[in-house]
Structure formats: C-alpha cells, structure tokens
C-alpha cells in the first residue's frame, strides 16, 4: 500500500479541453487492466445467471444453427462442399461467425447499456466495447469443443495447422472490435444503429462463405473485392486450418488489410467521439 501511495502521489492529472484527433493511450489502458477483467467477468456472469439453461446456450446455439443449415443447404439444396461432410463444413465457419456476430451485437449497444458508468466515473471508454467483445470468447471456447467432437465423430484428424486458429480467432475479435467501435460510438448519438445491427449481420452472414463454399464466387477481381469482408478470410482460414487444402493466402491478406483499416479508423473515430459520450448518452 505504501508503495502505491508513493507512486500515485506524484501522479498529476491534467484537465483541459480535448481537441481534434487523439491517439490511443495504451499505457492508460494497461493501468486499467483490472477493470477490463472485472467488466468482462461481469458480462459473462450476468449473461448466464438468469438463463434457465445457463451456459448450455453456448452449446445449443452452434448445434442448432448447424442442424438447420445442414438440413436446408446440405440436404435440401445439396450445396457442394467437396468431400467434406456438410455439418462439419458449416460448423467450422459458424464458430468464428457466431463469435463475430455476438461480439458485434454486444459491443454496438455496450456504451448505451453502460450509460450510468459513463456519466459518473472516468475510465478509458474503450474498455466498455473491449470487455463486451472479450466476454464472448467464453462462448467461443465452448463451441470449439463441439467442433472437435463433431470432427472426431466424422473421424477427421487434427493437424498442427489447427494452431492457426489462435491468430485467426484474434483476427475475428479485432474485426468485431473494429466494427463495434464504429457502431457503439454512433449508437450513443443515433439509436437507429441498434435497430440496424440485426439487418447488417444478416446481410453480412450471406456475404460470408458460411453456408456455401467460396468456390461459387468467381475468381479474380470479384473474389478479391469479396475478400475485403474480413470474415471471408477468417472463415477460409478456419476451414484450411482444420481441414487442409489450399491455403487462403490472398483472401486472408485482403481480409487482414480490411481489419487493420477498420480498426485504426474505428479507434480514432471512437477517441474523437469519446469526449462527448457523457454529455450525449
């Protein structure tokens, strides 16, 4: 305690009008790491506390969606997935998609949902959408186990390539955070955003090769434009890491560039809007 007092007694907080575009204060974010942890933990805890089935929802959601898409697209429409069983083919894509979808849903309303904190206490506002995205990772981890079980049932071996899932998951989280930063900051001022998100996600899902293979998109320029959707790279990356085949080099590169552009612009936009949150929300 004595040590922390000594440290903080030299700490001087300056108050002045914020002007223009602000950078990201990583040091401050690090200082508040425990708050990120507690808010993430709160989101996880609260989400399942009142649900009768609790954490089972994290299992049910991918299983049920896989079942539905398998019947509609795999069985009835007979979508060509090469030699992959359709349920595994779609589940491998649904996992990162659900991570992205839920993260985006949660983060876009996160600032408004935490208005009472924002108007009362100072902390880097970035923590709010960040922790709401991180909280979704628990669901993802659980549903990943389902995928491994499904692969075991179909007797599909895992290779070392599966380790690529780690950076690919990170890319998904960053993609969701990037879009979440834009949407959450906009939602503070315009509540239309939260009405738009479900439609946005619906369109986005069909613009991602989840229920269909990427091969139905013409190669060349169109395919590259298509790959600017960050989730295209992620989904193709997931399939490659789990099932092998041709690595999605260019697709993943385009998607990663899109994520970086969205994330950097999102961070700056968020920081610029940040100072008005407490007055407007």
């Amino acid at each position: 305690m004595a040590e922390s007092k000594l440290l903080s007694s030299t700490q001087v907080v300056t108050i002045k009008p914020a002007k223009g575009w602000l950078g990201i204060d990583l040091q401050e974010l690090w200082h508040y790491r425990e708050l990120i942890y507690f808010l993430t933990w709160r989101d996880i805890k609260v989400r399942y506390k009142q649900a009768a089935l609790g954490i089972a929802w994290a299992i049910l959601q991918p299983v049920l969606t896989t079942l539905i898409t398998s019947i509609v697209f795999g069985y009835l429409l007979n979508v060509d997935t090469g030699n992959l069983p359709y349920p595994v083919f779609t589940l491998a894509a649904l996992l990162p998609w659900h991570l992205f979808q839920l993260s985006l849903q949660k983060s876009s309303i996160s600032l408004v949902g935490n208005a009472n904190l924002i108007t009362k206490i100072y902390f880097p506002r970035l923590i709010i959408p960040l922790s709401s995205v991180l909280a979704v990772l628990v669901d993802f981890a659980i549903s990943l186990v389902i995928l491994f079980i499904a692969m075991a049932i179909y007797r599909m071996p895992l290779s070392w390539n599966a380790l690529w899932l780690v950076p690919l998951t990170l890319l998904t989280v960053l993609a969701a955070l990037a879009v979440g930063l834009w949407l959450s900051a906009l939602n503070v001022q315009y509540r239309d955003i939260q009405q738009m998100v479900p439609f946005l996600l619906q369109i986005w899902m069909y613009a991602t090769p989840i229920v269909y293979p990427i091969t139905i998109i013409p190669e060349g320029t169109i395919r590259y434009l298509y790959s600017l959707n960050p989730m295209v790279g992620v989904v193709q990356g997931f399939r490659w890491a789990l099932f092998g085949g041709a690595p999605p080099d260019m697709t993943l590169l385009f998607s990663s560039i899109a994520v970086v552009v969205l994330l950097v612009s999102g961070l700056f936009f968020f920081r610029r809007m940040e100072k008005t949150f407490a007055d407007v929300v």
């Binding site: 700490q11 001087v12 300056t14 108050i15 100072y122």
Partner: peptide, 17 residues
C-alpha cells in the same frame, strides 16, 4: 473527475482522484 471535458480552461489534480 474527468467524466466530461471542459470547453475551456485548465486544471490540475495532484494524486489519485
């Protein structure tokens, strides 16, 4: 308490707030 920014002026707080 830095919940909102001032439009003008300057301030300093020494120590944890």
């Amino acid at each position: 308490s830095r919940v909102t920014d001032p439009t003008e002026g300057y301030g300093e707080l020494r120590g944890r707030v």
